[in-house]
Nucleic acid binder design. Structure first.
Lengths: 215, 215, 215, 215
DNA sequence: CATGAATGAGGTTTCATTCAT
DNA sequence: TATGAATGAAACCTCATTCAT
């Protein structure tokens, strides 16, 4: 699932490398998220992973690679979820499916707010290729929502000029729950936020009533 | 207009301090925005300001203070604009006023995309009090939109459950034009974005037609 | 009274220079003593003197000169006292005169412990010529005690092989009350210290009783 | 023997840390003593130790820690000597034992005059806990002399009101040979100083002859 | 494969001194 | 005479990375 990225390594056992990298991604995440990328030293990262600095560099080519692993690992969970769970919502009406999708996604963001905020702020520190890989994950999440919207348009439940933009709006508003916590926390609870934003979205894509009166 | 923040100074001439700080805010902005806060040295900043390092520290207590000055100076322009220009839109219908406000604001964001993105990513590097001062600027922009929306509610042009949330949505979507340029640039032009988002927003807050038919 | 030391000056009015230097010596003393020479900036010194940095440099050639002025001013008080007060003790018996001299001197040290400690620790920061000037003040204090001891030897009250050494012992033990406060404060009060040290000194220089009975 | 002080380290190999710190204490001593603490840069210290600056900071948390190591290492030699050698002087008469102790101690001071002076002047630059640790070493030296004096009092060889004060006097006069070299060097040789001071001390603590004739 | 000691460039900040006003 | 803005050298300290063990 993780976007494959060529990272320099001393080890040649690809299986070991992969498992160690996952270990690193998991262990370093908490530390990096808490302290920020620039304020965390490689020594600390290695310590948090339970390995020596030298060992860390066997599975990773640079400190930046750790950043990539952490963000990639974190966002991949979202991609997996959206790509796997959304198609299963097909048994419901498009409106209900969208409601559920938004709710699930926003709750997932809430469950790892810090990581989402971290990804927003630190992706800029990645080299172009790694950054592009991360942005692709984001694009896939948007695409997953886009498919949900497309179905609703086909059935006539939604009336949307530009699917991509609406999907993008839905996804980013979820992310903003993490990024602009300082503002939204004062606004209300997560469930209230989900309810209100969902309503706004649905109103914006609901087909005009006029159609009904015409028939 | 700038939020007053106690920054250590060697100089006691308040007028000079203020003018030099504005100079610093302007000159450092470009450099910081281009390279990022952590990747820019104080030496470079001083150079960009046309002063020696020692001189810089006459008007600023730390590197972080420069960051604050830059972000504060940049965002203050937005606050000034929203607080001054929006009330003058009162002669138009609420809908038209909102259309114009959104358009103006989004175009302003587009005009200093880099700074907006920078503010989003680097505000985290500020100490609590400075960060809070910056976030207050953001809150004031939201509040300015909130007032526009409130007027529309009074006249019955808008039907909004939660003014703050809608205002927040409007503002953040403008900021996202800068922050998620990498995504939206592929979507379309700024004017297209303004048109589409405005439409989505208006649809979301337009009062239900049913009401009219009922009467 | 102050040892004249050629210090570079911009001003040519010798009277003004002298009065300003005394002002500096007095005002800077407290600050320097409290913070230490290296940890005090010229800016702070100027501030404590109620003048601008530039003005300070009109009457002083360097920061080090301020250190010299402070120490010189402080120690000169001791010299003045010893050289003026001791001769007047001549009406008493040599033993009593010495008792009084020691008491007065030690009490004086106690009254400006901080400055005495400061002088001990920071004189090393002076250039050779200035340092030598300060050490001369010290020598004059020793010499004052030496004269008291000499009189006692003439009268047969004291039996001393080496006047200089005993005088030096007396003076340094007074200074140690300031320098080794951390030790002696636990030992007892100043008056107890004076009493005990005086007794030890007197026993060390009292002529052997045997001699008299022998004759 | 060295007072254990928690100093930050990157290394966890306690043995290596200890040996490197001793190396640092030895190599830095000469340089620091010659130039003074404030006038010596960390770069110079590292150079004198034959290591890079980074390496130095593996074994030391700050420049101040180096100062502590140097003073602690230097004074510990005195403590060891006094605590180990003095008890072995027990076979001699108390008077003779004291004579020897004073002689040995003063000669030891003479052998590392510079370091003793350095310790006197720079201990003030240590943080409270480190300073206290150094002062404890001093107290132990005084205590060693105190025990010698106590034995003499038991045997009736000495008559002393206050053991601590006399011991303190003995120790400080040794230190003053280093601290006030500029004065005492003109007075005479080390051996002359030892002889004269010893005589003064003994006269001050010798029991009055009268007592003996009385019995 | 695992380790962590070693490195030195480069980071931010301070400060004594000068000189134009 | 009085001022303090300006300077840049140099201070302490951190850190990503390498490589011998």
């Amino acid at each position: 699932m993780h976007t494959e990225q060529p990272i320099r390594t001393y080890s040649k056992d690809q299986g070991l490398v992969a498992s160690r990298r996952e270990h690193i991604a998991k262990c370093a995440a908490h530390l990096l998220v808490k302290q920020g990328y620039d304020r965390t030293s490689v020594r600390e990262i290695a310590g948090a992973c339970g390995m020596g600095m030298g060992s860390l560099y066997h599975y990773v080519g640079s400190k930046e690679d750790v950043l990539y692993l952490v963000i990639d690992h974190g966002l991949s969970r979202y991609v997996e979820f959206c790509e796997e769970a959304f198609p299963k919502l097909g048994t419901n009406s498009p409106t209900e499916a969208l409601r559920q999708a938004i709710g699930e996604y926003y709750r997932m963001v809430d469950g790892s707010q810090d990581l989402m905020l971290f990804a927003y702020q630190e992706t800029k520190n990645l080299r172009l290729d790694a950054r592009e890989a991360i942005l692709d994950l984001d694009r896939r999440i948007v695409a997953a929502f886009e498919r949900l919207l497309a179905r609703g348009c086909t059935t006539g439940d939604f009336s949307i000029d530009n699917l991509t933009l609406v999907a993008h709006d839905i996804v980013t508003r979820g992310q903003l729950w993490a990024v602009r916590r300082w503002f939204l926390r004062k606004y209300g609870s997560l469930e209230q936020y989900i309810k209100d934003e969902t309503e706004l979205i649905l109103r914006a894509i609901r087909p005009p009533k006029v159609m009904a009166s015409k028939g």
